[in-house]
């Protein structure tokens, strides 16, 4: 496999956050903290992950809440820089889709489509040519000039997805994107699209709790647990582990309850 075939490359990538807790402290404590560095707390969100995602691959990421999935996506896109010693690179135009983000609420659907597609690298002429396709795919013909803030979650998701697949995004990163969409019709429609040729050459990274989507489409799945990559492999293999992890988590929660 040459580097040209790789869409996303992570080498020994870790991410540590230094978080300052908002806690009321006495003034002397604050001053002391400045010298000793005690004001900040370290959180290792992602630990030492090495991973190659091939071009055209449909890659799934699963894991419990707070296991570092979203941080990993941000590391892939380069919005977060890995800690020293790690290297992350992304090869191509990407768009990250997550619910509730990605649009300016005060602008209409038309304006948002133009802005997002333009920022992604399309010229106005290309956007004009594709505009109807985008709106038709999102089934928002009646809401072209409505502000996004009046859109439902499902409508926003449809529009974001439509822009992403019609613009020239080589890599589409979906962060819990289908989690909150109750729109079954749209979900099956997008799922069908995953099978279609237009998406074949795109790389898709899907982070989700929804096992069925990942199981059906992803060839490879990564299981995150406490910031670490527990296992990568075929969906069937990984899901066995995932269920174990979930069970352990549940047990731990129950223990916490009895402790209290």
């Amino acid at each position: 496999m040459t580097d040209n075939d790789i869409a996303i490359k992570l080498e020994n990538v870790s991410k540590t956050f230094h978080i300052r807790d908002k806690k009321k402290k006495s003034f002397p404590d604050v001053i002391k903290g400045i010298f000793t560095g005690n004001n900040k707390r370290k959180i290792e969100a992602v630990k030492n992950i090495t991973l190659n995602i091939k071009k055209g691959e449909f890659f799934g990421i699963v894991g419990a809440n707070g296991s570092g999935k979203s941080t990993l996506l941000h590391l892939m896109t380069g919005v977060y820089r890995p800690d020293k010693g790690g290297k992350a690179s992304i090869n191509g135009n990407y768009i990250r889709l997550s619910l509730g983000l990605g649009f300016n609420q005060e602008l209409t659907a038309r304006e948002n489509v133009f802005i997002n597609a333009s920022v992604m690298g399309l010229t106005f002429r290309e956007i004009e040519n594709k505009f109807h396709k985008i709106i038709r795919f999102a089934e928002l013909e009646k809401f072209i000039d409505t502000k996004i803030k009046y859109f439902s979650r499902g409508m926003r998701a449809r529009l974001a997805f439509a822009v992403a697949i019609h613009a020239n995004a080589d890599i589409i990163l979906l962060d819990e994107f289908f989690g909150g969409v109750g729109d079954e019709k749209f979900r099956t429609k997008s799922e069908k699209l995953f099978e279609k040729a237009i998406l074949r050459e795109r790389t898709i990274v899907l982070v989700s709790h929804n096992l069925s989507i990942i199981k059906e489409h992803a060839k490879r799945v990564l299981l995150m647990h406490n910031g670490e990559c527990m296992i990568t492999g075929t969906p069937d293999k990984v899901f066995l582990y995932y269920q174990k992890v979930l069970k352990v988590n549940k047990l731990r929660i129950n223990e916490d309850k009895t402790d209290a």
């Binding site: 919005v79 990407y94 983000l101 300016n104």
Partner: peptide
């Protein structure tokens, strides 16, 4: 402009 910075490469 966070809605663009976090999601798209430019």
């Amino acid at each position: 402009k966070r809605y663009l910075i976090e999601n798209i490469k430019f």
